[in-house]
Design a protein around this nucleic acid. Structure first.
Lengths: 249, 249
DNA sequence: CCAGAGTACCTGATACCGTCGGTTTCGTGA
DNA sequence: TCACGAAACCGACGGTATCAGGTACTCTGG
């Protein structure tokens, strides 16, 4: 996982093995298959976008002008389709991210760009987002999409860690990965809260939320709030109040 | 296999026939119902714990020595059962949290306690955790469990905000809520990463992860890492470190 | 005041339905 | 001949309807 690449060739468990071997006449089908598969993903994405994350395989198939058996020829199961769709989305996000990162010179700006790209994706198609982040029934413990995003975040982080010569106990990759997983979770949690809030008064704009999240991830609420009050960078750990008891659920 | 009526609590002579109440024949079952409902939740929790988050309603019913119709008499649907189970778990977490908060004097310790309680829950029963955090098919946009935890986090946070006299643009509640949603997401993301990592070398212990997460949430990675290197509390925003740009895939 | 009939409300099993993910069968066209 | 693709099919599951008790309350007549 050296690259930022979202692992576009994921677990082959959910991907159908090519039944045809490189036997000359099969190569002709290879690219056809690939093209058709991509087309199916495209259609599935459109259908999910419009119909919601609960579309059935039948609906997807008929939207593609065909029947389930075809879909199942290209994807092992629904999870396989979900993964393929996630890869398509990830590829697109990566493109947007590269553009944004070109004009980001501080690492913090980089973080902000990542948050921005994520939130843009969520906003641009909540249904697709929901579909892609849904954990499969009795399947892998990790959702491919979130896993890939985590890798995308962890990779530069771990490099920055090693390059900056920070020495921490234990393997740095575990440190970076756990932070990345947490950070992605933060954006996910805040983003989904934000989407659920839409329409309520006081809901921040996407850009506001982006900056907010980046701030919080970077310096924590203390750093952010103290900055708000004037003193830019003194966390003041012996702060007052906070986490106390609360009412019943 | 129970009798038709286990113990309907005959409330005969100790309760006057209230003219406002429609009929004593209906009220008779009230507390029995409540008790049975709780019992069903308990059993469901045990079954989910052992069988995994994909148990069917039939399985739960038969584990309770009855059939689906009974379960559906007490819970509108599977989501209703999920919510009830979540409430039971939340109640327990709240108990643990109150105990922990009693010995936490700084807000940061409070945060650490919350993280600890969450991770303890995840570790104590991954299956129940998974069941309770699963988003229902085509249902509410928010998972009840996560929503409730977010509220538990946001409440003290918003109080701390107002009491400390921090003035921020817009309603403070939106600010607190978005942070809470993000923080819960952070713990969720890191916690699930951690559970998926179990067995790998370099995986932190629960306690290590707890402190790590609390640190990151409180001061961000910059604050944490600079502290690691010696200077306890100087984030130094113009820092080197993390999320930088990276190359193309 | 009381005995018993009638009633309101409940329990609970079983059969059933619609949907959906996934598989198998079989016709057909190159 | 043979792969492709449509359509029938299958099993599982969430959820509902039906029906058969059963118990404690209420009502009525003596």
């Amino acid at each position: 996982m050296s690259q930022i690449t979202p692992a576009p060739t994921p677990l082959s468990e959910h991907r159908h093995p090519d039944p045809l071997q490189p036997d000359g006449r099969s190569t002709r089908w290879a690219d056809h298959r690939e093209a058709r598969r991509a087309e199916l993903v495209r259609i599935a994405r459109r259908v999910v976008h419009h119909q919601g994350p609960d579309v059935s395989m039948d609906e997807i198939a008929s939207a593609a002008g065909t029947s389930k058996s075809i879909v199942y020829r290209y994807f092992a199961d629904k999870t396989g389709l979900q993964i393929a769709l996630a890869d398509a989305v990830l590829l697109q996000m990566q493109g947007a991210l590269e553009g944004a990162l070109r004009s980001a010179d501080t690492p913090r700006d980089g973080l902000r760009s990542m948050v921005a790209v994520y939130l843009e994706m969520v906003e641009s198609s909540p249904h697709v987002y929901s579909f892609v982040t849904r954990q499969p029934e009795s399947g892998a413990p990790m959702v491919h999409f979130l896993d890939a995003v985590t890798a995308m975040v962890a990779t530069p982080f771990v490099r920055a860690l090693t390059e900056s010569g920070v020495t921490v106990p234990g393997p740095t990759s575990a440190l970076a990965q756990s932070w990345a997983a947490g950070a992605v979770g933060f954006v996910r949690g805040a983003g989904e809260w934000w989407m659920a809030q839409q329409g309520e008064p006081g809901t921040p704009s996407r850009d506001e939320l982006t900056r907010q999240i980046a701030s919080w991830l970077w310096v924590g609420p203390v750093g952010f709030l103290t900055r708000e009050r004037g003193s830019p960078d003194r966390p003041d750990p012996s702060d007052r109040q906070p986490p106390a008891t609360q009412e019943t659920p």
